[in-house]
Amino acid sequence: MEHTSTLEKVLRGTAITLVILFFMFPIFWIFLMSFQTNETILRVPPSIVFDPTLSNYTALITGKLDTAAGTLEISFMKNLWNSLFLSAASVAVGLVLGVPAAYAFARLKFRGSEDIAFTLLSFRFAPPLLVLLPLTIYFQQIGLADTYLGLIWVYQLIVLPLILWIVRGYFEDIPADVEYAYRIAGHSWGATFRKIALPLAGPGIAAAGLLAFIFAWNNFVFALVLASADKQPVTVGALAFVTASGIQYGQVAAGIVLSILPTFALALYAQRYLVEGLSLGAVKG
């Protein structure tokens, strides 16, 4: 490996450059577009030289879109808020449901525990519409249609298996003797769970929560099927926004930038755990 030829260095350099270009260019371009008005966006040939403007962002944030035809109301901020609320609430519910179950699967092996754990995992792989389509009818009947509660419940489909399997791994990594020692010292299993298992698995639980948040945030199909406009997250809202805003491409771009920034920030923060999360706990980064 040490004696790499110049030709190889050049080839490697070119390859890396092409890779970076392909994967980074769209983000870079949309980012630029979000600071432009239609006037500069529609120039032929396109150019990266322009007078940046924040008007797209201010329009999105104030919810007032000034067009030639007059002022248009846009609900983008509502979508952003829905994304935040749905993701955060889903993760909170997922942690409350998933962490005790993960502990049960990791520590208190019981009859049928593996079957249940795998059933939960297999939800991750079933076609979501298979569950969603009947649910649209059920939700009408039990009054969960177009409610946050109904959505949060359905979000467990992706959040729960993720949390369960990642956190389970972290619980399994705690030496059993440490927990035994605490029990023998006179503490109940509940105290042991709170004072030993939870703090020691803490980083893993936090990572699982962050990753689950990203997956919930990026989800599209659940809300597309089950939510009406005022409950929609950005993934669905942005699509509707394209038609609503007519030809204000700069605002669409700004909307995309605002919608992907939170996940980028979280991913950067939790990068150490990303590989583990993406492989549902099978591969450590």
Binding site: P175, D177, V178, Y180, A181, Y182, R183, I184, A185, G186, H187, S188, W189, I196, P199, L200
Partner: peptide, 20 residues
């Protein structure tokens, strides 16, 4: 009878100290 109710003290070979 649960471990915590047996009135036992135990030292482990690998110490099993509470790391936190």
């Amino acid at each position: 009878v649960e471990p915590e109710d047996r009135g036992i003290g135990m030292a482990f070979q690998n110490f099993a100290l509470f790391p936190h």
